[in-house]
């Protein structure tokens, strides 16, 4: 099962390689990964979408916590977090399909950010499943390029992660 984990880490060189190395060394999966500094500049936040059964997810969480540079592991079970991802999609758009692409963009509240006579480039933000849905519709029209950021997640409710 897919699972989203946020890892708050020291914003220092080499920390990302420790986290990624842990996943590869122990055979854990990374479906997507995104990392950037937080409002506290000494901290970075890594969002990892992974998969595995309960035992594997428990090990992932424990192993991450064991790393000296990891300050906090936030494990988002279903519904406890808002998840968002952005994608840039370059899609073929000629003759008949130009109108169809626009209709799909409109339905998904996406944006056209670059236009040529033969293509549209679309920007879309949303839950990863929403991005998968628009891709399913655009695929038959001819995808030229796809770039996804990987999901980021934040817990629901009034509190920040520090509580």
């Amino acid at each position: 099962m897919q699972h989203t984990i946020s890892v708050v880490v020291e914003n220092e060189f080499g920390v990302l390689s420790r986290v990624v190395g842990l996943f590869s060394g122990r055979g854990f999966n990374i479906d997507s990964l995104s990392v950037a500094p937080t409002m506290d500049e000494s901290l970075s936040r890594i969002t990892i979408v992974t998969r595995g059964d309960d035992a594997i997810l428990e090990q992932i969480s424990k192993q991450l916590n064991k790393l000296v540079d990891v300050i906090k592991v936030l494990d988002f079970s279903d519904g406890s977090a808002i998840e968002r991802e952005m994608a840039l999609i370059k899609v073929a758009a000629e003759d008949d399909s130009r109108a169809e692409v626009l209709r799909i963009v409109d339905i998904f509240r996406a944006k056209i950010v670059d236009v040529t006579p033969k293509s549209y480039t679309i920007e879309i933000t949303g839950n990863p499943s929403k991005i998968n849905a628009i891709l399913d519709l655009l695929k038959p029209l001819g995808l030229k390029e796809l770039v996804r950021t990987g999901a980021v997640a934040i817990g629901r409710g009034p509190k920040g992660w520090k509580g």
Binding site: A55, E58, Q59, K62, Q63, N65, K66
Partner: peptide, 8 residues
């Protein structure tokens, strides 16, 4: 002492 050893 190491939580990762448990249920590994």
């Amino acid at each position: 002492v190491d939580p990762t050893s448990i249920r590994k």
